[in-house]
Amino acid sequence: MADQLTEEQIAEFKEAFSLFDKDGDGTITTKELGTVMRSLGQNPTEAELQDMINEVDADGNGTIDFPEFLTMMARKMKDTDSEEEIREAFRVFDKDGNGYISAAELRHVMTNLGEKLTDEEVDEMIREADIDGDGQVNYEEFVQMMTAK
């Protein structure tokens, strides 16, 4: 299944994987998964984290390695993001709930994920998604960005 991913997608997933893999040992533990999910405003229980890991832990060693992570991402993409997942993601970014993602809100979430971005990089990300040019990202623009192939 992971063989249907483009090189660009694999590179993006590698970057995402390293955000989860806090200690850089090449595997994601339940603790690391929990840290990232909490930084995104989720509050999973230990059991939920274990279930999430077990779902993709092909070799049964209790952690997720990069090939397992790729399989999980490929699977998720095949079920292409349901509207509800996209709306949920939008809410994570839209901290003040005004229906727009500002540069400050984007920077806040990315920083929580451990991504240190310059102001230019954040502005560039907003510009790429900002179709109507108002300097922020509304829900429609967010959907376009998330579903762009």
Rank of each mutant, 00 (worst) to 15 (best):
A2M: 02
D3I: 00
L5W: 03
Q9T: 12
I10W: 12
I10R: 03
I10C: 15
F13K: 00
E15T: 03
A16Y: 09
S18V: 08
S18P: 11
F20T: 02
F20D: 06
D21S: 10
K22F: 06
G24C: 10
D25Y: 01
T29W: 02
T29L: 04
K31I: 12
K31V: 02
E32K: 11
E32H: 15
G34K: 03
T35C: 09
V36M: 09
V36C: 07
V36R: 01
M37K: 10
S39Y: 15
S39N: 06
S39E: 04
L40I: 15
G41I: 03
Q42C: 04
Q42L: 12
P44S: 11
P44M: 01
E46D: 09
E46C: 01
E48V: 10
N54K: 08
N54P: 08
N54C: 03
E55S: 14
E55F: 02
E55M: 10
V56G: 13
D57R: 15
A58W: 01
N61I: 09
N61A: 14
F69P: 04
M72W: 11
M73N: 14
M77F: 06
K78Y: 10
D79R: 11
T80W: 05
T80L: 12
E83F: 03
I86M: 00
R87W: 15
A89C: 05
A89E: 01
D94V: 06
K95C: 15
G97T: 10
G97N: 09
N98K: 13
N98C: 07
Y100K: 04
I101D: 12
I101A: 11
A103E: 00
A104M: 12
E105A: 14
L106V: 02
M110N: 03
L113N: 03
L113T: 00
G114W: 06
K116A: 00
K116R: 12
K116Y: 04
D119G: 11
D119S: 14
E120H: 14
E120C: 11
V122W: 04
E124D: 07
M125P: 02
I126E: 03
I126Q: 02
I126R: 04
R127P: 01
R127F: 05
E128Y: 02
A129E: 03
D132Y: 08
Q136K: 00
Q136P: 07
Y139S: 04
E140I: 11
E140H: 06
E140G: 11
V143I: 11
V143D: 04
Q144V: 07
Q144F: 03
M146N: 01
A148V: 12
K149P: 12
